[in-house]
Design a protein around this nucleic acid. Structure first.
Length: 258
DNA sequence: ATGCCTTGCGGAGCAAGA
């Protein structure tokens, strides 16, 4: 099973790129982040024509996630449990072929001085940790994939000095990401590739893409039952080079058959 | 230099992203 994650920075602005990439890459399941539309404005017909059924958790203008699948799936969650007052569209979870797949769009958290932004990020991560414990207890293959907005280590960043004051780089943020690993989740990309300097995001500004000055912030974390089936995990840089590219590029995980 | 891009919203110039 091939499972991809991609922050598309508006699914409607990116529709041609997304549909052509689905045709070329043909993953079984894709979790999208920042679709930036309500469910009624999601381009469902074009996605279905490409061969995918979609579970859409939308919101006007901002955020928004979707799970696309070529295989039958059962929707499990449309929100991250733990705070009914949180109305932002950042979480979707489904079971596909015996694998629990969660798509997440973790809050950015800047500026770090702001409880509204940074505090929200910390609290969202704490809820994710709690929910992840419950998923582990199911003892099934689980893949939590998406835009974590976390730079795990200095080597995942082209210039750590430039990111010292940023919410993506704070020690307490990175500690929470490590806690997911300590409780039993495996960073699929890092398990397959020891190299630093492998990025999933390059800012539109300042020529970051042509200079390959990026950060690795899109991740797939695997429960032990999924990790023992890990065949490969790759960053597909091709979509970032296209016209009208998203500032993120897809991450693709391949699991061996059960 | 809270900018430099890019998007949504709405019909100008912000807000938000990372």
């Amino acid at each position: 099973m091939r499972i991809a994650s991609w922050n598309v920075n508006s699914v409607n602005a990116r529709l041609d790129n997304v549909v052509s990439w689905l045709g070329e890459s043909a993953p079984d399941v894709v979790v999208l982040q920042e679709i930036k539309c309500q469910e009624e404005n999601f381009p469902r017909a074009a996605i279905e024509a490409a061969g995918y059924q979609a579970a859409v958790v939308g919101e006007k203008s901002y955020n928004g996630v979707a799970l696309l699948s070529r295989l039958p799936f059962e929707l499990r969650q449309r929100a991250l449990p733990g705070d009914d007052a949180d109305t932002q569209a950042r979480y979707v979870e489904a079971e596909v072929g015996g694998v629990i797949i969660a798509g997440i769009y973790l809050p950015n958290g800047n500026p770090v001085e702001s409880d509204e932004k940074y505090g929200r990020k910390l609290r969202w991560m704490d809820r994710l940790l709690a929910h992840a414990e419950g998923l582990l207890a199911e003892e099934k293959p689980v893949v939590i994939a998406g835009d974590y907005n976390v730079i795990p280590e200095n080597e995942d960043c082209w210039d750590p000095a430039e990111w010292l004051g940023d919410a993506l780089f704070q020690d307490e943020i990175r500690a929470r990401y490590r806690r997911l690993q300590h409780m039993g989740f495996t960073d699929a990309f890092r398990a397959c590739d020891r190299r630093g300097g492998q990025y999933t995001f390059w800012d539109y500004q300042k020529g970051r893409w042509p200079r390959d000055e990026g950060i690795r912030i899109d991740h797939a974390l695997l429960s032990p039952e999924a990790a023992i089936r890990l065949a490969s995990c790759q960053i597909d840089r091709a979509p970032r080079a296209r016209e009208k590219a998203s500032d993120h590029t897809p991450l693709i995980v391949t699991l061996n058959a059960a």
